[in-house]
Design a binder for these strands. Structure first.
Lengths: 135, 135
DNA sequence: CCTTGACCTGTACCAAGGTACAGGGTTTAT
DNA sequence: ATAAACCCTGTACCTTGGTACAGGTCAAGG
């Protein structure tokens, strides 16, 4: 089994080397065996695990949540339903964020529409809205 | 003209007292005149300004951007169009965030649908997708 | 008069997710 | 043989938007 140094792992997983050590400190990546001189020696699995973390992050999971997923996976009683529940909770989370942003967008669009875009800033309806209105 | 202490300002603008001092350090609120004993004495305008900051923040503007808006307002050549441009840039920004979240949502929904929600975690299609797929 | 509450400055700390050294040892390539 | 490139630990620093003291002064109520 070929072993990777931390630099090789970082390169393959396309993350910063310091990030690997950071994930180890956070418990996201297990402490690997060391070479005689104390170098971390990773198996191939570490690349997959690091990529897993990056994919989950890209889907909106925090590092804490990713830790929880790994922990879940290690418990023998865990079922697929538990994992599905996590994903469904995250979907709701994302949907809430989208709804919040839609509201913000509506308010911004309404403000922009009130402004002809000409004239001095002293009479800008946008600034007036920010100074006086409830949004 | 009635003057407010920092505590009174914080209460009326519904922010933490430390936040007022923080905004002063960031240059968002001008340094107010002091009483003989060195207390900050604010005019009514400070309440409106603090509320402006909070409203703009709620619309997705960062404190840095809010500073820029205040700076813009002080320059005599600034027109309403400059302000409108800021709002339109923010709308694009928000729309991009919404689009990103929609994509994430789609990916999560697709993953959840692959999972029947039963059986051991070892065969969970969600975990497999995170381990192997490009998303 | 004295206590309590409000204010002052300055600095440290928080979340989250890293990144960047310093100061040392090791491995690899020339 | 020696320089470059890599690794080690430990700690400090970054962003954004605050919050929380510590240690001291001041003001208002009973």
């Amino acid at each position: 089994m070929e072993k990777l140094t931390i630099g090789q792992l970082a390169k393959r997983a396309k993350v910063n080397l310091e990030t690997i050590r950071y994930y180890e400190r956070r418990g996201l990546i297990p402490e690997p065996p060391r070479s005689e001189s104390g170098y971390r020696m990773y198996s191939r699995d570490a690349v997959a695990r690091t990529e897993f973390i990056k994919r989950a992050q890209a889907l909106g999971f925090s590092l804490r949540e990713i830790s929880e997923i790994f922990a879940l996976r290690m418990e023998p009683e865990t079922t697929c339903g538990d994992m599905k529940a996590k994903v469904e909770a995250k979907i709701e989370d994302i949907e809430q964020k989208i709804a919040d942003l839609e509201q913000i967008r509506e308010a911004l669009v309404a403000m922009a529409e009130k402004c002809r875009g000409k004239g001095p800033i002293g009479e800008c309806p946008i600034l007036e809205a920010l100074y006086k209105n409830n949004i």
